[in-house]
Design a protein around this nucleic acid. Structure first.
Length: 1019
RNA sequence: GGGCGCAUAGCUCAGUUGGUUAGAGCGCUAUGCUCACACCGUAGAGGUCACAGGUUCGAGUCCUGUUGCGCCCACCA
């Protein structure tokens, strides 16, 4: 690698070129690749595979930054570190994106293309976005082992899926059954509960009257039921009433009484009103409801209007007497609750829908209509028949499919399920007994709660993009025929198809031929598996399972999983249970849940909202290191990260605030220059033609500035390394500032290490930042300048400088890999041999360097205390200079009044004080005389007295001293009151009391000094 | 409805087991282009720690309640 002469280094760090160069270098050197090596300890992470639906945003950037920090950190610590990369096919999400595009651009549906062609289109899409995603990760500096890149739909993963399915099926953990599912009529597939969102829309509440068949004396002619979806009445198979209305009303009343007791003053009237309403209801409706209940028990029926079907009255607890009419229509095939009623009451289940959302033959005269049209017609027909009792306006929560954004219809369909009883329990145990640790620990609760429900997992999706279910139907074959056809094969198993008769045949790796059973036709199930089925296998499938590979033996269980909280249940829990089932061990030992990145409105970033930020934009402007450092710096334990973002106008570079309004526009007008620029939404040619306004956030300035500071510190070091030669340094040769910076370096090294081990990323960044900026740059570099001019002192100074920078680069490398590598090589050229007492050859790359070990022997509290006093004196002198408006170039003289002990500590710092504050000490000691005209400033332990002969601004000095006196007087009053409190003096620990007394005395002394100063100034 | 989290300077956030009169970065004011860095230095202004109670000698920190915000789960004929 070529290096630039240090004198040619620019004053500002330019990130673009080094980022490209070093990433290429690392890849060429094969640094990211890991092979099993029993002699070394492994450290492994599998990436949460990004969906190939689209490009990555800042949330992904955070997720991957943290993983790369961990991997680079562990690699430097000597672990054989593997970061396994890959992407997720994201079944429904990807298919939906491609189908939507197909529709908008070509006005075609998937059925126009057919299964094979659509899948080809999706593969093309996948290629494009996978490239983009992997490119984004590389640009960020991610040190993934790219040779091992996997895709959840590739051959290796497919094999793992087949084996898992086969074993589950063999063990009876997978079954098929008719279940009410969330049906997406647009995509024509079932979607899981997790893929459904609710939206409040204006709707109606219709009250329908069903005639009672042959009402007897005293019996009502109608029962009234209410619904928000009147068209579903076509599938009604009963009307329910509560079996014990009195008891139910009692329970409801008891509930309200409880609520009343707990209610605050504000809610009380409302609860009282509810209670009164309930009591009124009991008075008027209990009788009628009991009568209906008796009719139900007697097997009486009502007539379903429009279809004129006789349906029974049933007694079921689902009908709540405290709500509505107390009666409820039961549509088992189209409502989850009614489905349960249907099972309990053994009611017929009538499916009135076609897969595309139109009504089928069961809807009689309404067949062929869409749900919406059917609704209008049903309502109109009921009204004509005089059976519409009332219509209310009402806001309703309507379920929508997350993927197609169309309303969900509950729909009865054949689906495949995984039995969760045992599997869930095993995953719960793994967390309970801490084989898997979750950080922060509070997230374990949600994980356990969700698993404890042990709800069976619906795994079939009526899609074309995904792992095809390896089941073949043999409806008319006999078991004898199967036995004969598959004799001697252990890769085929079959179970009876309980619902439909015939056989379900599962094949392990090879698909079955239609003619596999002579004379019988086998038909493969058209469905694919839920995308989480393959992601759940990720930690072991990527390592080669079911093959017993060396990788699997070496890297599994993986060390850590880094992910965000919204997929703890969907993904993390399922990986644990799959890992336990297939590998008999947990998939990872630790899980770190990181914050979410929110926009300035507190909303999560997502593509559909338009508030997603492309990390490339941020990197273009600030650099990959700044992106990474900035994100890690924000990764605290508790908080989500709020990130206000702006467009940067490509014409005039000013920032245009991103609002809810403009963030979804294809073009935005700059307020500053009035010109238009395009955004991520641009699709029309004249929009696309405009220069693009990248989306950035000022929040990365801190990190960008930090990188620049580090760069300039390095520049300073390099400019001063001329003539550098290594020679062993004895501790006695070290100057005070050397001992101080080495002491601090040791402390900071152990603190940063501990923070990273505990996933306290923000702490680690803050510690390194403050050490680099406030200690190394602001003090050490300033102090060492004098010695660099002194030929006798120069060599030791150079060596400590190079050594400290070397260690700092290593501490920072996991977070900011590019700039540290760039400087590392510049430093290697200038100082090829480093170290203090012993010579050390720098590694060929900082990536391969050892993680710094704290040299605890160098930690020196006396030196650190001395520096505290020194910094105190400097601060005092600078403050007086500023107050008095004395220009920095004007030298000042000062006396320091403090104890002999501190004088001894500070005397060696005189030269530093001279150079850093342009101030000369004229006298030191406990009894120094104050110059006749002087500014005084109290320190922690003493006082600086600046001779102001010819310089003084009396008024400013008086004002400042008065203000300080006022502050101290308040302080002293507080302390006196505290110490006069017998309770405090008696009960607080003696050392606390002692500390308070000392600080009181100190403050009183300071006040006395101020009084004297003021008197002198006024004289 | 159940659960989790949050509320500290204009903005974005730190604040260890309770212990001197609460910190950082940005922004703001003043000032300095001093030979690493103006993406910088120096100094300054700026806070009833959401509100109300309680525990304690002592509360930003612990407890209870209230309000507001965010998220997860369940459910609403």
């Amino acid at each position: 690698m070529s290096t630039v002469a240090s004198s040619e280094l620019p004053k500002q760090y330019h990130h673009a070129e080094p980022e490209r160069r070093w990433y290429q270098f690392w890849q060429q050197q094969g640094y990211f690749h890991s092979e099993p090596d029993p002699a070394r300890k492994p450290y492994s992470i599998v990436i949460p595979p990004p969906n190939v639906t689209g490009a990555l945003h800042l949330g992904h950037a955070l997720n991957n930054t943290l993983q790369d920090i961990l991997v680079r950190f562990k690699r430097m610590q000597g672990f054989n570190a593997l970061w396994m990369p890959g992407t997720d096919h994201a079944g429904i999400a990807t298919q939906a994106v491609v189908e939507r595009r197909l529709l908008t651009e070509e006005k075609k549906s998937r059925h126009d293309l057919g299964r094979q062609q659509l899948v080809e289109r999706i593969w093309a899409w996948k290629q494009e976005y996978e490239q983009r995603i992997l490119g984004q990760l590389k640009r960020m500096g991610c040190s993934c082992d790219w040779q091992r890149t996997r895709f959840t739909l590739d051959e290796t993963c497919a094999r793992a899926v087949r084996h898992t399915f086969f074993r589950f099926f063999e063990e009876g953990l997978i079954y098929r059954g008719k279940r009410l599912v969330n049906w997406d009529t647009y995509l024509q597939t079932a979607v899981s509960d997790d893929e459904v969102f609710h939206e409040t829309v204006a709707g109606h509440f219709w009250h329908l009257k069903y005639p009672v068949i042959d009402p007897q004396d005293g019996e009502p002619e109608f029962v009234t039921v209410a619904t928000t979806r009147p068209e579903t009445m076509l599938g009604d198979t009963a009307v329910a009433v509560h079996p014990d209305p009195a008891a139910a009303l009692d329970a409801a009343e008891a509930e309200l009484q409880k609520k009343l007791a707990a209610a605050g003053d504000k809610q009380r009237p409302e609860v009282q009103q509810q209670l009164a309403d309930l009591q009124e209801r009991r008075r008027t409706m209990l009788g009628p409801l009991e009568q209906l209940r008796d009719m139900a028990l007697a097997g009486r029926k009502v007539l379903l209007p429009l279809l004129n079907r006789e349906i029974p009255l049933v007694a079921d607890v689902w009908a709540k007497p405290e709500l509505g009419s107390g009666c409820v229509k039961v549509t088992p095939a189209h409502d989850p609750n009614d489905y349960d009623v249907g099972l309990r009451q053994q009611l017929p289940m009538i499916n009135i829908l076609n897969p595309d959302g139109t009504l089928n033959a069961s809807a009689g005269p309404y067949a062929g209509l869409s749900m919406a049209k059917a609704r209008d017609k049903v309502v109109a027909d009921l009204e004509t028949a005089g059976l519409l009792a009332a219509v209310e306006e009402r806001e309703i929560e309507l379920a929508h499919s997350d993927r197609s954004k169309t309303p969900i219809e509950p729909y009865l369909a054949d689906q495949w399920f995984v039995k969760m009883e045992q599997l869930a329990q095993s995953a719960m145990d793994a967390v309970t007994d801490e084989r898997v640790q979750i950080f922060p620990t509070r997230y374990a609760r949600g994980y356990l709660d969700w698993l404890s429900e042990k709800r069976d997992w619906p795994i079939s999706r009526q899609l074309w993009w995904g792992h095809r279910i390896p089941i073949w139907y043999a409806p008319d074959a006999s078991e004898a025929e199967l036995k004969k056809a598959f004799a001697g094969r252990d890769d085929v198993v079959w179970h009876r198809d309980e619902d439909h008769g015939g056989w379900l045949v599962c094949a392990l790796e090879e698909d079955l031929d239609e003619q596999a059973v002579p004379g019988r036709r086998l038909v493969q199930d058209p469905d694919v598996l839920d995308t989480w089925f393959s992601s759940a296998l990720w930690p072991h499938s990527t390592l080669g399972w079911p093959e017993q590979t060396p990788e699997l033996a070496y890297y599994y269980p993986t060390s850590a999983l880094v992910t965000s909280r919204d997929i703890i249940t969907l993904w993390v829990a399922r990986m644990v249970l799959m890992g336990l089932h297939n590998m008999h061990d947990v998939p990872f030992r630790q899980v770190f849940i990181h914050p979410k990145i929110l926009d300035s409105y507190g909303e999560g970033m997502s593509k559909s909202k338009g508030n997603g930020v492309d990390p490339i934009d941020v990197m273009e402007k600030f650099g990959a290191d700044a992106l990474r450092f900035g994100l890690a710096y924000l990764t605290t334990e508790t908080q989500d990260v709020r990130m206000p973002v702006d467009f940067e106008c490509p014409h005039c570079n000013t920032l245009v605030e991103q609002t809810k309004k403009n963030r979804v526009l294809p073009r935005v007008t700059c307020k500053q220059c009035g010109k238009d620029f395009s955004t991520q939404w641009a699709s029309k040619p004249d929009d696309v033609a405009l220069p693009r306004g990248p989306v950035v956030s000022e929040r990365f300035e801190l990190a960008r500035n930090f990188c620049n500071k580090l760069w300039n510190a390095a520049r300073f070091v390099l400019l001063n390394l001329e003539g550098y030669a290594f020679a062993p340094i004895a501790d006695a040769d070290l100057a005070v500032e050397d001992r101080w910076i080495l002491s601090r370096l040791s402390s900071v090294t152990s603190q940063v290490t501990a923070a990273l081990e505990q996933y306290h990323f923000a702490d680690a960044m803050r510690l390194a930042y403050e050490f680099a900026w406030d200690e190394f740059c602001s003090f050490y570099l300033e102090m060492v300048k004098n010695r660099l001019q002194d030929p006798a002192a120069r060599p030791v100074a150079q060596q400590v400088l190079a050594h400290t920078l070397d260690n700092l680069l290593r501490l920072l490398h996991p977070a900011i890999p590019f700039i540290t590598e760039e400087i590392w090589h510049l430093l290697a050229a200038a100082a090829p041999e480093r170290g203090l007492a012993r010579s050390e050859r720098p590694a060929e790359s900082v990536m391969k360097a050892d993680w710094p070990q704290p040299e605890t022997a160098r930690q020196d509290s006396a030196i650190e205390a001395r520096f505290a006093h020194f910094q105190d004196v400097l601060r005092g002198l600078r403050e007086i200079r500023s107050r008095q408006n004395i220009p920095p170039k004007t030298p000042i003289r000062f006396a320091l009044r403090t104890s002999d002990e501190i004088v001894e500590l500070l005397r060696p710092m005189a030269a530093a004080i001279q150079s850093m504050a342009n101030a000369e000490a004229t006298a030191w000691g406990p009894d120094v005389e104050a110059p006749p005209t002087c500014a005084r400033l109290a320190l922690t332990a003493g006082e600086v007295l600046v001779d102001l002969a010819g310089l003084i601004d009396k008024d400013a000095e008086i004002a400042r001293n008065e203000k300080e006196r006022e502050r101290l007087t308040g302080f002293v009053q507080g302390k006196r009151a505290k110490l006069a409190n017998a309770n405090f003096v008696d009960r607080a620990p003696a050392e606390v009391v002692q500390k308070e007394r000392a600080s009181l005395v100190e403050a009183e002394q300071k006040i006395a000094a101020l009084e004297a100063t003021l008197a002198a100034l006024r004289a």
